[in-house]
């Protein structure tokens, strides 16, 4: 560890010498991410914390429905060596369970609750992870999953209001837009050849 080493290089060294990095990406001199195996997340977070990455900045997930995976993203920060480090790992989407990192970063308590609420990831080890945080009485699949249909939800929960037609200015005689709509229907009726 010499002075000529940049902070990013330091992190790279640190992470790569301890765990098996599946993929890495350097965004810029302040941001870097590493993809690791699920069972190595706690280990590497522990090492990062001891090396000065004491702040748990964010924890969230990305839905990859085609791969049938959730990608958890842990973002930690070091005030001495200003680099955001993202530790990413993909977990099963059908039964998404990830042990809590509460013992390492107590501040992750609410992030895990949020992640559970928005993606449905379970965090055993966090006694409160199932408590509702932001969404009140949510009765649908977690809303940040890509198979959540916001339009259907909106229609179910917030029935279309019959607003007074204050904004409409209609033309006298035949509406051009109505004609356009009729033409569209006519064109649609001609379809149905080779799909």
């Amino acid at each position: 560890m010499t002075n000529s080493m940049t902070n990013v290089e330091f992190v790279q060294n640190l992470v790569k010498s301890n765990v098996n990095v599946l993929q890495e990406h350097i965004t810029d001199q302040y941001q870097v991410h590493f993809v690791v195996e699920q069972d190595q997340v706690h280990y590497i977070l522990n090492i990062l914390k001891n090396a000065g990455w004491i702040q748990m900045s964010y924890l969230s997930a990305i839905d990859w429905p085609e791969e049938n995976k959730f990608e958890l993203v842990y973002i930690v920060f070091n005030w001495e060596k200003p680099v955001y480090v993202q530790i990413r790992t993909k977990i099963d989407r059908e039964n998404p369970v990830m042990n809590s990192i509460l013992p390492i970063y107590p501040g992750s308590k609410y992030y895990e609750r949020e992640c559970h609420e928005f993606f449905g990831v379970k965090f055993p080890g966090n006694p409160d992870y199932e408590k509702q945080l932001i969404l009140e009485n949510w009765d649908d699949i977690p809303p940040m999953r890509k198979d959540f249909d916001p339009e259907a939800y909106s229609k179910r929960k917030f029935p279309q209001r019959e607003y007074s037609e204050t904004y409409i200015v209609q033309s006298e005689g035949k509406s051009k837009l109505a004609k356009m709509e009729a033409r569209k229907q006519r064109a649609e009726s001609l379809r149905g050849g080779k799909k």
Binding site: R183, K184, R186, A187, E188, L190, R191, G192, G193, K194, K195
Partner: peptide
């Protein structure tokens, strides 16, 4: 029927597009 035949191309329905 421009948007309609363009959509037909996207859905590979040449016959429908031709009729339109």
């Amino acid at each position: 029927h421009i948007p309609d035949y363009i959509k037909a191309i996207w859905e590979d329905d040449i016959e429908g597009g031709l009729r339109q």
